[in-house]
């Protein structure tokens, strides 16, 4: 076994050597994706179910392409249109799917800990594709891959994560990964959207002023406001948020230095990012999406071993 774990539930469980192994392997898969035939036969005897209890565009398509490029058989499951609406439990649904001889489960769920629960109760390998406000490990891995590719490494690089930190599993996974790999991390946003004890718990800097954060960082990873997860009023209007924390070209030009902009998607244009930034040369957003396939291929490949 090349990784210290049988499942990928979160960055929390990965050693820095595991992260290094995944990122190095992804380099090889990125090369595979440049070939005329963008496919390898490694997982041709493996069946994978993509179990999505929550909406997703990028992650689901990215996993599906990664699986197909590895020659795995794939089955897609979305909660809407399934027997979930008839009252079937998560464990029943999964056990029924597994009895059709499925080897791996890629799973997204709105409940924090859902993939951990499955990993304890079913024999298949579980890969977390986002659980509630907990973790989104493959997003953090592809973000790290993109930074490493652009800046030549992670150690000592300054990454600012900007926006709705409180409700973001991307932020949670990114903070843990970047700290494990020796990067410096800052979170920035309105005080109401930054959890209180983040600085002590993870050793990150906290900044409430956007321009100060942008001046400090090499890379700004900008997050969406997750209105669907907010059940109380944490800021007045999106317009006000955008005025204080929206990134536009004028602001970037005023920094006097070049920084890279990342975003896990989907972007709310005009809120956290203006179009003239999202589509500019500063932006790594589409490279992130491209790298996502290679990184997910690496994760699936490394977790597919029989022993």
């Amino acid at each position: 076994m090349q990784l210290g774990t049988r499942h990928l539930l979160g960055i929390r469980d990965l050693a820095s050597a595991d992260i290094e192994t995944i990122l190095d392997t992804a380099v090889s898969f990125k090369e595979v994706l440049q070939r005329p035939i963008k496919k390898v036969p490694s997982l041709r005897d493996v069946t994978i179910v993509n179990l999505f209890y929550e909406n997703s565009t990028r992650t689901r398509i990215s996993f599906e392409i990664a699986e197909k490029r590895l020659s795995a058989d794939t089955v897609n499951f979305t909660a809407s249109g399934s027997s979930v609406s008839k009252g079937e439990t998560l464990l029943d649904t999964v056990n029924n799917i597994l009895s059709m001889k499925v080897d791996m489960v890629v799973m997204r769920h709105s409940a924090t800990g859902a993939p951990h629960f499955l990993a304890r109760h079913v024999p298949a390998t579980i890969i977390n594709a986002g659980d509630g406000i907990n973790e989104h490990p493959t997003q953090a891995l592809l973000d790290a891959f993109s930074i490493r590719e652009k800046l030549g490494g992670l150690e000592g690089r300054r990454v600012a994560i900007i926006g709705d930190i409180m409700h973001s599993r991307v932020a949670m996974s990114n903070i843990q990964l970047l700290k494990k790999m020796g990067a410096e991390v800052m979170v920035a946003g309105p005080p109401t959207l930054i959890p209180k004890h983040l600085a002590e718990a993870f050793g990150v800097r906290v900044e409430y002023d956007l321009k100060t954060a942008l001046q400090w960082c090499d890379v700004a990873n900008v997050l969406r406001i997750q209105l669907e997860r907010q059940n109380q009023v944490l800021f007045s209007t999106l317009r006000e948020y955008s005025l204080a924390y929206g990134i536009n070209k004028r602001l970037l030009d005023s920094l006097g230095r070049q920084i890279h902009i990342m975003h896990p998607g989907p972007i709310n244009r005009g809120v956290e990012l203006d179009s003239d930034v999202a589509d500019s040369g500063h932006s790594l957003i589409l490279e992130q999406v491209e790298n996502g396939v290679a990184v997910r291929m690496a994760v699936l490949y490394l977790l597919s071993g029989k022993s």
């Binding site: 076994m1 090349q2 192994t21 190095d24 392997t25 380099v27 090889s28 090369e31 490694s42 997982l43 005897d45 493996v46 490949y301 490394l302 597919s304 071993g305 029989k306 022993s307």
Partner: peptide, 9 residues
């Protein structure tokens, strides 16, 4: 898949 090997370039 008997034992996962790491790729070279």
């Amino acid at each position: 898949r008997n034992s996962i090997h790491l790729p070279s370039e």
